[in-house]
Design a binder for these strands. Structure first.
Ligand code: FES
Ligand code: FES
Lengths: 146, 146
DNA sequence: TTTAAAAAAGACATTAATATCTTTTTAAAA
DNA sequence: TTTTAAAAAGATATTAATGTCTTTTTTAAA
């Protein structure tokens, strides 16, 4: 469904926010350890996200990653679109050059519905929503193998 | 969402079934032309599917691809699982090693719902359903660029 | 029985995604 | 002002997905 890059991104940002709320700005090695992702690759991803102003970073001693108040308002949709491309929530599930409800592919009915649902969710939720679930249930950012 | 391979597969199988129902067994070059996919790559995909008994083929003059009655009953789910792997409809959207509703990732609630919906659809539909839509609307297997 | 047309097989090429390693820049603290 | 710890940058490596090309096998028809 989502690429590894998107998955590492979401996990990393949730971890960053959770640590920020404890007053800490974690570095990429710590982040990678805590979300179980390859450290250098995670560093690269965060570098990209910082360039795109989706996350903030501080260099030097006591540096690390953090989310400003404004960045905490960015929708998951915007974040994912930065990674997967602008039209991830518009493209045809069957692989046609574009999705056209008036001239649909055989999957359109079902696919467009699901795509729309996902898009709605991503559009109305943020990293904060992921990090601080309303039901207060403990959430997991990594998992041991079976 | 789905890989190119899955998309070419679905488009090719729908085209094959439509032609079969006209009494023809198309070859991979024709198929590729009609679904706008790379010909040799499509040939390879069909070769794989034939090995997996998802499609049938005849070699030699007047050869080509076709779906037997039994093959027309295979669910989209089975077809997609052959390509994307057995656990495509069970895996965690957040990238955790496995999905566990009792110890959920922050996306679980929404993702599992959507995943289940898609799985239900794929499980209860076949290439025949795609090829012969109930509403009789014309369906498209390729599309000119905008 | 030869020829033609088709899929199958195998080898190879390209591209995109994922991953690692090294050097440079920056900033705080000692 | 030197040291240290961090991100940024750049170079490179690996793997997986996608795509192409050539040869072999098979079958039907001429
Ligand atoms: S036309 Fe294929 S999903 Fe809309
Ligand atoms: S635990 Fe992540 S989708 Fe279920």
């Amino acid at each position: 469904m989502f690429s590894k890059t998107s998955q590492y991104t979401l996990r990393a940002l949730v971890y960053i926010l959770l640590e920020n709320s404890k007053g800490r700005n974690p570095g990429f090695r710590e982040i990678a350890r805590e979300i179980d992702s390859p450290a250098e690759f995670t560093g690269k991803i965060l570098q990209d996200l910082a360039r795109k102003k989706i996350v903030s970073s501080a260099k030097g001693k006591h540096g690390g990653f953090f989310l400003t108040e404004a960045q905490r308002q960015i929708s998951l949709r915007t974040i994912i679109e930065h990674i997967e491309g602008e039209n991830i929530f518009q493209s045809c599930g069957f692989g046609l050059k574009y999705c056209d409800a008036a001239n649909p592919c055989p999957l359109h009915e079902e696919y467009a519905t699901i795509r729309e649902q996902l898009q709605q969710y991503m559009n109305s939720h943020t990293i904060s929503h992921l990090a601080f679930q309303t039901d207060g249930q403990r959430i997991y950012l990594k998992r041991e193998a079976l």
